[in-house]
Amino acid sequence: MKKPKGKLTLEVFFLIILTDVIESFAELFWKKGALATGIDNVTFANVTQFMSSMLTGPEFLTGLFLYIVNFFLWVTVLSRVDLSVAFPTGSTSYIIVALLSMVFLDEHISLYRWSGIICIITGIYFISKSANDGGSPA
């Protein structure tokens, strides 16, 4: 079944960024949850203990809730644009994390990081160009 290829509109772009920000938070909660179990080396012997401690913790459940919200946002995005457009566009989150840690955590952004940020912006420009100048009707 062929659907017309959707353009990367500003609305879809913001939805993609939103899903990536939410995902970063969900991952952070799960990481905190894994640390909270106090088990730093999971083996066959303690995997059950690790899982039962992890899966009932508030950090895990908060992360799970965020993942569920994200699921609906992400399928909405996918219903509108190509996967090969939506997925790489999500790398905007790397820029957001870098800028946020500069502003709020006073982290220094190295020359490497700045050039990485410029590379990512260039990449997203090319991706949106491939989606929007394709000539196929939206």
Binding site: P88, Y94, R113, I121, G123, I124, F126
Partner: peptide
């Protein structure tokens, strides 16, 4: 091209 720029960017970051 865009995807490879992004990969390079992520590695640099």
């Amino acid at each position: 091209l865009g995807t490879f720029f992004i990969i390079a960017g992520i590695v640099l970051v």
